[in-house]
Amino acid sequence: MADLPGIVVTGVSGRMGQQLARMIAADDRMRLAGALERPGNDWEGRDLGACLGGAENGVIVGSDPAAAFAGAQAVIDFTSPAATVGFAEAAAAAGIVHVVGTTGMSPEQIAAVDAAGARTVVVRAGNMSLGVNLLVTLVRQVAAALDGAWDIEVIEAHHRHKVDAPSGTALMLGQAAAEGRGVALDEMAERGRDGITGARGAGAIGFSAIRGGDIVGEHDVLFATEGEQIRLSHRATDRSLFARGALTAALWGLSQPPGAYDMLDVLGLPKGK
């Protein structure tokens, strides 16, 4: 076991953290090297196996990234923007792979995380699934093939607990559409319609967000013009698919030189200009 790459999971008491911890423990390609939570969390200082409702596994949930990263080769991070920026610095200092699935980050926070790629491998993506990343590629290609008479709308749905909107995946899809059209998403994005908004802006890339129940993740990109529509869709029914993608990214990152990467790099899919 000691020669297997060690993976640390941050935010381990959350839904994704628990999923990741269980999948790493069951995977013969890696070992669970550490688990992190916020100081004062109910799980801090306790055995992770017991916290997960099983037998003790000797992994004690801590709150010190430097200590956890010292014996690891990678960290998988689905937490909050501010926490992720701190983990990026700690991972770079330790020289371990940092896989980032955190969403809702500001441009400044994204830049801070990606800057850590000068010292270590950072794999950051708004969505870790193969299907979504294939969808990103298709959206870019379709947007490039259609003229400005086609409106583009990104429609996403998630569970009631999600705190950011549009989702990171929706922003990935919007960025792909903008790249296909050769425009800047920041200049063409249209969000949050309410009241008398006026007609849709020419060339706008719209975003619509739905929150409710336990929806894991649904994303549609609608291309609409007079008389016809094209709809590209992805449905996630089990969040384990995101965990599988993150584990794939962590193992891939172990053999890469320092740099800031995304899941298109991991999966070998074509990227936009």
Rank of each mutant, 00 (worst) to 15 (best):
A50L: 14
I60Q: 03
A250R: 01
D47V: 08
L267P: 09
G95L: 11
I215R: 05
G54Y: 06
F87K: 09
F69H: 01
A189W: 12
L4H: 11
D238Q: 02
A118E: 14
I215S: 06
V99E: 05
D164I: 15
E187T: 10
Q229S: 14
L251W: 04
T169N: 05
A157N: 11
V121Q: 01
V12H: 10
T79F: 09
A157C: 07
H219A: 15
A157W: 01
L251A: 13
A74H: 05
I7S: 03
A70H: 04
I60H: 05
I196S: 04
I110G: 03
E218T: 11
G148K: 01
G201L: 08
G168F: 07
L222K: 01
D147I: 09
T120L: 02
G34D: 10
D238L: 08
E190L: 14
V142R: 14
A125G: 12
T103E: 09
S240G: 00
A72W: 00
V136S: 08
N127S: 13
H219W: 13
V123N: 12
D28T: 04
I110H: 12
A236C: 12
G245N: 08
G253S: 13
S167V: 09
R239C: 09
G180V: 11
M263D: 07
G174N: 13
G180D: 02
C51A: 00
A2N: 01
G58K: 01
E226P: 00
V221G: 08
M128Y: 10
F223L: 08
S106P: 01
R181G: 04
